[in-house]
Structure formats: C-alpha cells, structure tokens
C-alpha cells in the first residue's frame, strides 16, 4: 500500500494551523490594544521582575521628591526668619551708632532705646516662626513657643529663655540619606554651642540698657560703644548662619535634580521593557492577519477539492 492520506488529515492539519494563526492575530492585537508588550508575567517573567523593582524605585523617588519639597519649605521659611533677624540687627547697629553720639540728649536716647525694644520683639517673632503651626526653631518641641522674653527684660540675664531642645528633625531625601530640616534655635538666638557664639537677645538687651543709661564711655563694658562691637560680631554670626542655609538649599537642589534624572531614566527603562513598539506591532499584526487570510483561503481550496464521490451518478 502506497502513502495514503485520509480525508480527516487535512481537516486536522488546517484546524491546527488556523488555531496558530488565530493565536498570532490575537496576541498582536492584544499588544496593540494595551500598548504593552507584557500583559501578564508569563509574557516575559524576567522583565516583570525588573519592572516591579523599577516601579518600586519610582514610588520611593516620588516620596523622596515630596520630602524634598517639604525640606525646601522648611529651609525657605528658616531663611526668611533669619533674614528678618539680619535686618533687625543691622537696624540696631544704625540706632546704636546714632545713640552713641555724645551730643544727643537723654530723651532722644530713650526714644532710640524704645525702638531697640521693638527690634527685640521683632527678633522674638522671628525666633518663634511657624510653618503649618510648627515652631521651626524649637527642635522636637514644635508645639510650643521656643523663646520667651524674661518679664524683666532688658534687665535680666539671660534676657530670653529657650524652651525648645537641641534635637533636629531629619527626613529621608534619598536612598539611605537623611537631611535635617531644622536649625538649632538656642545656637542661632541664644549663643549656645560655645566658641564665639553671641546671644542676640542679650546683645539687644545690653544695647537698650546702655541707651537708657546713656553710657557713651567706650571703655566701659556696659557702654553703647561696647554694644556696637557686640552687634558687629552678632551680624557676622547671623550672616554665616544664612550662608549655612544656602549650603542646605543647594544640597536640596542637587538631590532633586539627581532624583528627577533618575526617575526619567527609570521611566524610560520601564517603557523600553514594557511598552510595545507601535510600528513593529502594527507590522506584526498585519503579517499575522495576512497569514490567517492565506491559511483560510488555502484551507477553503484544499477542503473543497473535487472528490470521486462527485462523479458517482
């Protein structure tokens, strides 16, 4: 017996081939419709793992960026507060130089002293700056005013009390990196931290006292002239504090730039792994369609081939 082909064989063959062609059309139309090359883990299990870890990083970067925004708000607020301090101290020095003039009468000095008293209030308000109801210079004690003037101001030592603590709140701004978003209030305003730090309240209090007593003897430690000298070192201190804020905001900027760059890179990676190449997918879809059409028409032709049965009368 030679090689024979049964009638069912061609049906079986075309059934399978049609099934495969249909699958190809379905697969490429799914990719076109979803815009994704990967629609379930089995489409590319390794890539799915990578994409999951990329998405994980993206989620963290988004959070770091939110934290950086909050850090930025804190530092901007701190910078504004210390700028106010700077202006107050500059004005205090002007007033002091004015008041040190020997030709001035006691009444005029008292008026100047009154203005210096107002500057102490300005300093206090800057030291008690809030952001969203939190006092920014009080360390962890953000819910209470960190500074209070002594009731006997300016005749008290210390002139103002610090009620905060020396802890600094830190937040996470990058993988394993934290940034403090506070400055130590007692260091900035009360001369804590040793070295040649100056107590700003005390400096203003002494100036006020010297103005009220009219002490213009430059050699006397309680004179206006001495207060002017103290104000000079206070200004140097305030300006160096402003500079140190600048270094923080620069760190925020560079970290943000790096994170945004990283995020764009990751987005691109995910897209490369996951997204469908539209031109290629369209081409593949058309090819699959064409193959299906060819199969269908050849199946039609083969399965309708004339049979001997047609010729039996």
């Amino acid at each position: 017996m030679g090689f024979r082909v049964s009638t069912t064989s061609s049906y079986l063959l075309f059934q399978r081939v049609l099934g495969l062609s249909n699958q190809r059309v379905l697969k490429s139309s799914e990719q076109l419709a979803s815009g994704k090359r990967i629609n379930r883990p089995s489409d590319d299990p390794e890539a799915v793992k990578t994409i999951a870890s990329f998405r994980n990083s993206m989620g963290r970067i988004d959070q770091y960026l939110r934290n950086l925004q909050s850090a930025d708000r804190h530092w901007t607020q701190a910078e504004q507060a210390i700028n106010r301090v700077n202006e107050a101290m500059v004005r205090a020095r002007e007033l002091a130089i004015q008041g040190n003039n020997g030709t001035l009468g006691n009444e005029q000095r008292k008026m100047i002293a009154e203005e210096v008293h107002q500057l102490a209030q300005e300093l206090l308000s800057a030291a008690n700056t809030q952001i969203n109801g939190e006092f920014i210079f009080g360390g962890y004690r953000t819910n209470q005013k960190p500074f209070e003037l002594d009731p006997n101001y300016p005749d008290a030592d210390p002139a103002a009390v610090f009620l905060g603590d020396s802890n600094l709140k830190r937040i996470e701004i990058n993988e394993g990196q934290t940034l403090e978003i506070q400055m130590q209030g007692d260091r900035i305003f009360s001369g804590a931290g040793g070295g040649d730090r100056v107590d700003l309240f005390q400096t203003l209090a002494r100036l006020e006292q010297a103005l009220r007593t009219g002490n213009t003897d430059d050699n006397d430690p309680e004179s206006i002239g001495q207060a002017i000298e103290d104000l000079g070192s206070a200004l140097t201190q305030v300006q160096s504090d402003l500079a140190s804020i600048g270094s923080r905001t620069r760190r925020i900027e560079t970290t943000r730039d790096a994170l945004v760059f990283q995020r764009d890179l990751i987005r691109q990676f995910i897209s490369e792994k996951e997204d469908v190449d539209l031109a290629e997918a369209t081409y593949e879809f058309q090819r699959a369609q064409l193959a299906l059409q060819a199969t269908v028409s050849s199946a039609g032709a083969v399965l309708n081939m004339p049979s001997l049965m047609d010729f039996i009368r």
Binding site: G139, Y140, R141, N143, K169, Q182
Partner: peptide, 8 residues
Amino acid sequence: NVTGVADN
C-alpha cells in the same frame, strides 16, 4: 511629651 512632638 519629654523630647517633643516632632520626634520622628
């Protein structure tokens, strides 16, 4: 209550 509410 001792260290302050901003302790994170």
